[in-house]
Computed example of a mutant assay.
Amino acid sequence: MNGKTRQVELRLAKIPYIGFIAVHYWFVIVHNTTKCDRWEIWQNRNRGGENWGHLHQNLMGAYNGVGNGESCREYTWHGKTAEKLIRVIEESKDNYPYCYVYRYFPGPNSNTYVAWVLDKAEVDYSLGRKGIGKRYCELR
């Protein structure tokens, strides 16, 4: 990766205790070979890193799991699609409507946030069936 090409990774990890039915999704913006930012909704407010209620930037290391094993990369976007995603993600601290609301079920939760970003960036990508909360905005 050269110094000017950014990419966005969609990552996931099994949720502790219920990982057989639910996963936690988040985004990693890879700016260059040495800098990346993790963006996600966490169940607790103001837990670390930069945060806006439940929305956190760099609460944990970009590739850390969430307490039930390692994380894995599900998808990577490059080019114009990555840049659209980055714009929506970085502006989400001002635009995401559920920064101060969190519910495990039916949402809004981490998966609601990821689905919302994908929708606002007009990226046609469907989260897996274990992404509980991904359809919260559709149901509203």
Rank of each mutant, 00 (worst) to 15 (best):
M1N: 15
Q7C: 15
E9C: 07
E9R: 05
L10G: 05
R11I: 11
R11P: 03
L12I: 11
A13Q: 03
K14P: 00
P16D: 01
G19E: 06
F20Q: 01
F20T: 01
I21P: 00
I21Y: 05
I21E: 02
A22Q: 07
V23A: 06
V23F: 02
W26I: 02
V28M: 01
I29F: 00
V30M: 09
V30E: 06
H31Q: 14
H31G: 13
N32R: 14
T34M: 15
K35C: 15
K35A: 15
C36V: 14
C36I: 14
D37G: 15
R38F: 15
I41S: 06
Q43D: 05
R45A: 11
R45V: 11
R45E: 07
G48L: 01
G49D: 05
E50D: 14
W52Q: 12
W52R: 14
G53M: 02
G53A: 06
L55S: 11
L55K: 12
L55Y: 00
H56A: 07
H56R: 08
Q57G: 08
N58A: 08
N58D: 10
N58Q: 04
L59M: 02
A62E: 06
Y63M: 09
Y63T: 08
N64P: 10
V66L: 00
V66I: 05
N68K: 13
N68G: 04
G69E: 02
E70R: 14
E70G: 15
S71D: 07
C72I: 14
C72D: 07
E74I: 12
E74W: 01
E74P: 09
E74H: 09
W77A: 09
W77F: 10
G79V: 10
G79S: 03
G79H: 06
E83I: 13
I86K: 03
R87H: 04
I89V: 04
I89T: 00
E90D: 06
E90G: 03
E90T: 09
K93W: 04
D94E: 10
Y96T: 13
Y98I: 11
C99G: 14
Y100A: 15
V101L: 08
Y102L: 05
Y102R: 06
R103Q: 13
G107I: 02
P108V: 11
S110D: 05
T112A: 07
V114C: 05
V114F: 02
W116G: 11
W116K: 03
L118D: 03
L118M: 07
K120M: 06
A121W: 04
E122V: 00
D124V: 08
S126F: 09
L127K: 00
L127Q: 02
L127P: 04
L127W: 04
L127H: 03
G128M: 04
R129N: 06
G131I: 02
G131N: 06
I132F: 04
G133L: 10
K134W: 08
R135G: 06
R135Y: 13
Y136W: 00
C137A: 07
C137V: 08
E138S: 10
L139E: 11
L139R: 01
